[in-house]
């Protein structure tokens, strides 16, 4: 007889009457696999319904559009990940022409020495690893280069997504990406800016997470 809580709990469970239950059938995949255009359209409309600003544009145009978006909001500091392709492109664009691009703050230290800075920046830009069309959500896989707090703490979160990474459903995203074989420290679905309805069910945006979510879908 074992004397740890763990063993006592497990033993009680093992001694209970067994009930067989078959593994459930996989959920039927979303009706007809919509084409890329339809996926982009559905994602865009669902995100917009959750008060997200969505720009669908060719890859070459996203940085010029970013300049406009940031300028319109008078963003002064932008947190970015210098080691990502996205970050490198942004830094290079700013070097060539700083117009409309604010001070870039590189997330290059650990949070212990960088926390104050993260809580003070105006906005952050990250990659979205993918998206789910049927429920309307971005998939974020924070990495060493692009840490977790970027999409959480700054009041404005800008995410850049490649249109070909939009999956019809979450199940398909999991299967195609073989998630179960390689789960990162943290994986997120994000469907809009932070919100609540805790007071009289009145929807209010920007509680604890970002007040604004802006998505660039690069579709060439």
């Amino acid at each position: 007889m074992s004397d740890t809580a763990r063993d006592r709990i497990l033993e009680r469970l093992r001694n209970a009457p067994r009930q067989e239950a078959p593994r459930p059938d996989a959920p039927a995949s979303t009706a007809a696999d919509p084409d890329r255009g339809a996926r982009v359209g559905r994602l865009k409309s669902l995100l917009e319904a959750m008060r997200t600003e969505v720009h669908v544009l060719p890859a070459a145009e996203w940085i010029p559009r970013l300049r406009e978006v940031l300028q319109a909001r008078a963003i002064k500091t932008l947190l970015y990940a210098p080691e990502t392709g996205l970050g490198a492109a942004l830094a290079e664009a700013r070097q060539q022409d700083a117009a409309g691009l604010p001070e870039l703050v590189a997330y290059s230290e650990t949070v212990e020495s960088f926390k104050e800075r993260i809580f003070a920046v105006d906005a952050a830009v990250t990659t979205a690893a993918g998206a789910v069309a049927d429920t309307g959500a971005l998939i974020l896989r924070p990495t060493r280069a692009e840490p977790r707090l970027m999409s959480l703490v700054p009041p404005v979160h800008i995410a850049v997504l490649a249109a070909e990474a939009i999956h019809p459903s979450l199940s398909e995203a999991m299967q195609d990406g073989r998630w179960s074989a390689d789960m990162p420290t943290n994986l997120l679905l994000i469907s809009g800016p932070s919100k609540t309805a805790d007071i009289e069910l009145t929807l209010a945006f920007g509680v604890h997470g970002p007040k604004e979510l802006i998505v660039f879908i690069l579709d060439d």
Binding site: L46, M50, V132, D134, T135, G136, A137, M183, P184, T185, N186, L187, L188, L189, I190, S191, G192, P193, S194, K195, G209
Partner: peptide
């Protein structure tokens, strides 16, 4: 809701 604003999957502490 079709999906919540955040679905947070945590698999490990900081690596």
């Amino acid at each position: 809701q079709l999906v919540t604003t955040y679905v947070n999957l945590i698999t490990s502490p900081r690596r």
